[in-house]
Amino acid sequence: MMRFKIVTSPHVLQNTSVGQVMRRVLYAMIPGVAALIGFFGWGVLVNLVLATAVALLAETVMLAVRGRRLALHLSDFSAVVTAWLLAVALPPLAPWWLTTLGVMAAIVVAKHLYGGLGYNPFNPAMVGYVVLLTSFPREMSAWLIPHGLYQPQALTFLETLRTIFSGEWPARFALDALTGATPLDALRTQIGLGLTVAEIRNSPVFGFVAGQGWEWAALGFLAGGLWLVYTRTADWRIPTGMLGGLAVIATVFYLIDPQHYAPPWFHVWSGAALFGAFFIATDPVTASTTPYGRLIYGVGVGILVYIIRGFGGYPDGVAFAVLLMNIAAPSIDLCTQPRVFGARRG
C-alpha cells in the first residue's frame, strides 16, 4: 500500500514570493535611479551601495540575534528595498556615517525592534530619513546642483569617494559652486522673500516643470511605478489616491492665488511626490490594507504632503506625511471593511 504526503489544500499555488515582490520594486527603481546618477553624479551610486551593504549586515545581525532563519529572511530582499529607498532620499554627497546611521535606524530600530518584516508599524526607510533630517538638518540639505555627469563641473568617481568617506571637499571647487537649494527649497525661501511663483520658476534651476534633473528622475520613477502597478506589485489605489489628493488640493490653492501657490503639476512632479507615491507610500506592511482604506490612505498622504510643503517647517513632506498616515492606517482599516459577499448593502 502506498503512503502519501498530507498537505492541506490548495495544492496548486501561484508562483509568487515576498522576494519576488521586493525584487520587482528594486527593478522598478532602476530608471529613476539612473536619472539621479546621471544628473547628480556618482554619489548617488556610492550611497546606494553603501546603504545596501550596511542594511544587509544589520539585517543579518538582527535576524541572528532574534533567532530567525537567515536564508529565508535574507532572500526576501526587504532590507535592500529599505536601503535603496533611504539612499535615494539622501543628498548625493552625504558623508558615510550619515548613510550608515540612517540605515541602522531604519533596520535595527524601525524594523526589527518592532518585530521584523510584517510587524513594523512605521515605514523603516522613512523613519531613518526623518531621524537624519531632524538630527542633521545641515548635512541633509546639502544637495548638489544637477550638472550632469558629462559636464566638467562634475566630480569624478574618486573625488566622490573621497568626499563621502573623508569629508574633504575636492580642492578644485568651492563648496557653493556645487551645492544649492533644491527647487522646493528655493520656492519656499523665495516666496518668503516676497517673489511670485512665476518669477521664481523662471530661474533655470526649475527646468521644464519641476526642476532641472529632478523632473527626469521623477519621470523615471513614474515609469517604474506604472510598471509596478501593471504587474500588480503595488496597489494602484495608493499612488492614485496620493497624487490625486495632492493635485486636487494644489489646484484649489493655485486657483485661489496663483501668485503664491505653485501650480498642481509642479507639486505632483517635484520633490519626492512621484517617488513617494509609487515606492514609499505603497509599502504594504505599513499602509492601509483594505481596498477603500488604501485610497483614503493615499489621499491622506497627498494632502499632508501639500500641507507640510506649504505651511510646515520642511520643504518636502513625503516622509512625515507617510509616517503620520502609518499611525492612522489601523483606524482607517477598521472603518473601511469591505462589504462581505451576501451582506446587506448600505
Binding site: 498537505v7 509568487t16 514570493s17 515576498v18 515582490v21 532563519r69 529565508l72 529572511h73 526576501d76 526587504s78 521584523g116 518584516l117 510584517g118 510587524y119 500588480r232 496597489d235 504594504p284 506592511v285 499602509a287 490594507t289 483594505t290 481596498p291 488604501r294 471593511q337 469591505p338 462589504r339 462581505v340 459577499f341 451576501g342
Partner: peptide
Amino acid sequence: TRPVAPCIRCGACVEVCPANLL
C-alpha cells in the same frame, strides 16, 4: 511547499477572495 514568511499585508488575498473578505 515553500517556507512560510510573515504576512506583509500586501492585499493580494483581498483581491482574489470571492467572498469579499479580508
